[in-house]
Simulated scan of single mutants.
Amino acid sequence: MSRFLSNELNNLEAYVPGEQPKDVKYIKLNTNESPYPPSPKVIEAINKLAVEGLNLYSDPDTRELTLSLAKFYSVKPEQIFVGNGSDEVLAFIFRAFFDKERKGCFPDITYGFYKVYAKSFGIDANQIPLRDDFTIDINNYINCGRNIIIANPNAPTGLVLSHEEIIKILKTNTDRVVVIDEAYVDFGSKSCIDLINSNHNLIVVQTFSKSRSLAGGRIGYAIASEEIIEDLNKIKFSFSPYNINSLSSIAGIASVKDEAYFHECNKKVIRTRERVKEEFRKLGFKVLDTKTNFVFVSHEDMAAREYHKKIRENGVLTRYYDEARIDNYVRITIGTDEEMNEVMKITEKILIEFASLGKVI
């Protein structure tokens, strides 16, 4: 690093994204992308814009995309903020509502960017341990006196808090913002968007990256009270007014309008996930009861690091976390049925090879 880097950021540990290899063709199940392409209507809209509108700046208000989302979720357009992926939305939330007086908290095992943002913005943030079974103990958040951020479903565990549990957290922290990050909500859990009008401290964050097959489009959004959205826009227009490019915006609009395709793809992912969970269990794996587009698995006879390495050698990318408490688990994105059939075949082969060697790794 250079000698010019700010002292405050000198010891910053950056977020490490999932591997994006260019050299070899893998079954890529390490970054929770959708295995399905975007809606055909998205492709049609992008092709049209590519020859008609890229000479002009994108709409800084993302008006049409905001209107589409407002209609889809039955909220006011003024209750929606759109960002360059949910990561940017989360960064703006940290910048707007967290400071030295308004401290934060989130689980110790969760999306890694929360810790990075807290460090980046100089925020005192408690990392509250999950229970031994990786569930969140809401008693740690009731009347906690801090801003709260919870991924629901959580990552990388895939586990979910109920509406009732979230309401208890909201009602006992009315002077603090409660951020519910719903990146995976469309794969079988219930959104908290219906709680926004009765809880003005709630911010719900979602993304187009997972359930809408637009990870490369970089579109995320927050839904909250009009006052909170006004605050976020103030931050945005002080930093990056044209944060959503025209191609992403038009793709997002087309995606939201094609509800049938959206629901069809999510149902396929859920169906495959439930089948795969049972197949992993039959092979002796512990599988958490995920409500996401991934599974989090552990095997008593084989270290997760070794399984991650072996399955990669057989052409499958997964995500391994070399972190305390979860270093014996591997996260595997749900791919197509054909891809997951291959994963199960390779996994069974790996287990047979170890058994034949009489090894417990």
Results as ranks from 00 to 15, higher is better:
R3L: 14
N7D: 14
N11C: 06
Y15M: 09
K22N: 10
K25Y: 05
Y26A: 01
I27E: 04
L29N: 03
N30I: 00
N30M: 03
N30S: 10
T31H: 09
T31R: 14
N32A: 10
S34T: 12
P37S: 13
P38Q: 11
A45W: 04
I46Q: 09
L49A: 13
A50H: 04
E52A: 08
L56P: 01
S58C: 04
D59R: 10
E64V: 07
E64N: 12
L65Y: 13
L67V: 01
L67Y: 13
L69D: 03
K71S: 14
K71I: 06
Y73A: 00
V75Q: 09
K76R: 15
E78T: 04
V82Q: 08
E88F: 08
F92L: 00
F94T: 05
F94H: 05
F97Q: 03
R102G: 00
C105D: 03
C105S: 12
T110M: 04
F113E: 05
V116N: 03
V116Q: 14
Y117C: 01
Y117S: 04
A118N: 08
N126F: 05
N126I: 04
L130I: 07
D132L: 14
N140T: 11
C144V: 15
I148Q: 09
I149V: 14
I150C: 10
I150Q: 07
P153A: 11
A155K: 05
P156F: 06
T157Y: 06
T157Q: 07
G158C: 02
L159C: 02
L159S: 02
L161Q: 11
S162N: 03
H163Y: 05
I167Y: 01
K168L: 09
I169L: 13
I169F: 12
N173V: 06
E182Y: 09
A183S: 07
D186S: 09
D186Y: 14
F187C: 02
S189W: 15
I196N: 04
I203H: 02
V204Q: 08
V205R: 11
V205D: 05
V205Y: 09
S209L: 02
L214Q: 14
L214M: 15
A215D: 07
G216A: 07
G217E: 11
R218T: 00
I219H: 05
G220E: 08
S225K: 10
S225R: 10
I228F: 06
F237Q: 05
F239S: 11
S240V: 02
S246Q: 09
A251C: 06
K257Y: 08
D258G: 09
E264Y: 06
K268Q: 14
V269I: 15
I270N: 02
R271L: 07
F280G: 04
F280R: 02
R281M: 14
F285H: 04
V287N: 03
D289A: 12
T290F: 01
K291S: 11
T292W: 01
V297F: 01
S298L: 00
E300R: 14
R305H: 11
Y307W: 12
I311D: 03
E313H: 10
G315M: 07
G315V: 00
T318I: 02
T318F: 01
T318E: 06
Y320W: 08
Y329A: 00
V330A: 02
I332N: 03
G335E: 12
T336M: 07
E338A: 13
E338K: 14
N341A: 13
M344I: 15
M344G: 00
I352Y: 11
A355Y: 10
K359V: 11
